[in-house]
């Protein structure tokens, strides 16, 4: 078990913003363009749960990330933001010396914030970034906040699909992280199955092995996060996860005994938006969150790193709702 439990009542999500490009494209067109055989194309809609993906081929990533963040800055003091952290799936989003995160910070007028990128957990890097932001803020003086950014360009042909798993979209998310007030991060569990570091170019046998290991590992990190918090699966109110093969989520749900709490509603309309998925799902379901709700943000990244982070929504859980 590889878990890191953070001290209670420290790292907290203060708010989440999301941006989705207006234009959408049927997944069949993306799959056709990427040479996926006709006999396999139907699986992505019928079994995996994909339908449309949102893309903006001509628009820079920094503009898409800034659009997700702007509503958050209207509701906080920008000068309190000490870090802007982009967490890309691919370890670079611009050729040196260009830096997407610095561009976003400049566009948002965050002149006092340190802009950096964290990577190597692929699509789970954004959860790592929330964790890291909270730890950095602990040493950055009182009242500091951090802005975590997730989402990437799909480009044409290279970042558009993960074969047998997902069709990628260009939705982005911004997460305002602070300490104390907000949705408290209760625990974080991470496992890296480093034997699959050749992904997405795994040999056929390794691909099969990963399919088997994936469900067990994903259920494992969720179980670890719950165990560290002393919660049972039935005490989770929501799971905001990554949009990949819907069938694998059903297996995880069955294995853990989770209730009907996995919120994958956006999979059919926006595809898998890299590390932004859990946060976009949070944003889409924010009206459903009640004070004291416990929810999991879950992501799996190529390489392969799987992370589950357990949060408690701000406010006291009402007695009749408490488990």
């Amino acid at each position: 078990m590889v878990t890191l439990a953070l001290p209670a009542s420290t790292t907290a999500i203060l708010d989440v913003g999301a941006y989705l490009p207006a234009a959408s494209e049927p997944v069949e067109e993306v799959l056709l363009r990427n040479g996926v055989p006709e006999r396999e194309r139907a699986n992505y809609r019928t079994f995996f749960g994909f339908g449309e993906v949102r893309r903006e081929p001509g628009r820079p990533l920094e503009e898409q990330l800034a659009d997700a963040a702007r509503p958050l800055l209207d509701r906080t003091t920008p000068g309190s933001i000490r870090y802007v952290i982009h967490a890309p799936t691919v370890q670079f989003t611009a050729p040196y010396p260009e830096a997407v995160t610095a561009r976003v910070a400049a566009m948002l007028g965050l002149d006092g914030a340190v802009p950096l990128a964290l990577s190597q957990h692929a699509c789970a890097s954004a959860l790592l970034a929330v964790e890291a932001a909270g730890l950095l803020l602990e040493h950055a003086g009182p009242g500091g906040q951090a802005l975590v950014l997730a989402g990437e360009k799909t480009f044409r042909g290279e970042g558009e699909i993960i074969e047998g798993s997902a069709v990628m979209g260009e939705g982005t998310a911004a997460v305002l992280v602070g300490r104390g007030a907000g949705d408290r991060m209760l625990t974080t569990a991470t496992r890296t199955l480093g034997g699959f570091h050749e992904a997405p170019f795994l040999a056929v046998e390794a691909e099969r092995a990963f399919t088997v290991a994936y469900v067990e590992a994903l259920a494992g990190v969720i179980g670890d996060a719950l165990e560290d918090a002393g919660l049972a699966a039935g005490e989770v109110d929501h799971v905001f996860g990554h949009n990949v093969n819907r069938m694998s989520w059903l297996r995880v749900r069955r294995r853990l005994g989770l209730g009907d709490v996995i919120r994958l509603g956006g999979q059919a309309t926006r595809g898998h938006c890299f590390g932004a998925d859990p946060f976009i799902a949070w944003h889409e379901n924010r009206e459903r969150l009640r004070p004291g709700d416990r929810y999991l943000l879950v992501a799996a990244g190529l390489g392969a790193t799987l992370t589950a982070a357990l949060f408690e929504h701000a406010g006291s859980r009402r007695p009749e709702e408490a488990s």
Partner: peptide, 14 residues
């Protein structure tokens, strides 16, 4: 190892 990750986009300050 409980955490392995990378930091970048800070040039020489990385």
């Amino acid at each position: 190892a409980r955490r392995v990750f990378a930091v970048t986009e800070l040039g020489a300050a990385s």
